[in-house]
């Protein structure tokens, strides 16, 4: 059955009629011609379809379009303003953070959402102190970006690209000392939670 709904995409308002089965990803690509989000696995496992829904990063392949009636969706395209690349786009270019580029729009949207989460002080699975301000070490960026796969294996440069933007935005320089410390901080085979006091 078809339903009529509203969707804001990258600053443009749309009214569209969709079958109930239509995912947000298919609505964007097949109905609205917004080709920035990509269909990789179509099961929420690869992150290529990541968009910001009302500012929060989500997998558009697992979202029914009807469920997001009235939402403002931002794709990687929408992060650019007046055809000017965003700092994240520019940093991905500067750091050679992709090869084929298929995962890149999802990576960029995920990074944008992740930086906002870190700004709000949201901890991650590798955060030692759940109540301390977030320091986006490379271990933190790797953990927070783990929902985005890159088949070309550009991960190292993606982490660098994202960290540089994080450092620029917070006005801090990503010091060599902390980078070196972060890289040797963790056993990669275990995701371990720190212990802490609970009253």
């Amino acid at each position: 059955m078809d339903y009529s709904r509203h969707l804001g995409v990258d600053g443009t308002e749309h009214t569209l009629t969709v079958d109930a089965r239509t995912t947000l990803l298919d609505a964007l690509r097949d109905r609205l011609g917004v080709m920035s989000p990509k269909k990789g696995c179509d099961h929420g496992q690869c992150g290529a379809c990541t968009v910001l829904i009302d500012g929060r990063r989500q997998n558009s392949c697992l979202a029914l379009a009807l469920s997001h009636d009235g939402a403002q969706v931002t794709t990687s395209n929408g992060l650019a303003e007046n055809d000017e690349l965003s700092d994240l786009h520019r940093s991905f270019l500067d750091h050679d953070a992709f090869q084929c580029g298929y995962c890149t729009p999802g990576q960029v949207c995920s990074a944008a959402g992740m930086l906002a989460e870190a700004d709000r002080g949201a901890p991650s699975a590798v955060t030692e102190d759940l109540e301390a301000p977030v320091d986006l070490s490379s271990a933190e960026v790797r953990e927070r970006m783990s929902g985005n796969l890159c088949r070309c294996g550009a991960y190292v440069n993606i982490v660098s690209a994202v960290r540089e933007v994080a450092a620029q935005r917070t006005g801090k320089r990503a010091g060599q000392r902390s980078a070196a410390r972060d890289d040797s901080a963790r056993d990669p085979m275990t995701a371990r939670a720190g212990d802490e006091e609970s009253r």
Binding site: T50, Q58, N59, G113, S124, T127, G147, A193
Partner: peptide
């Protein structure tokens, strides 16, 4: 919670 799924999935 933080050990489950990905940032995108936890948002949904």
């Amino acid at each position: 919670l933080l050990s489950g799924a990905s940032g995108q999935l936890r948002n949904a």
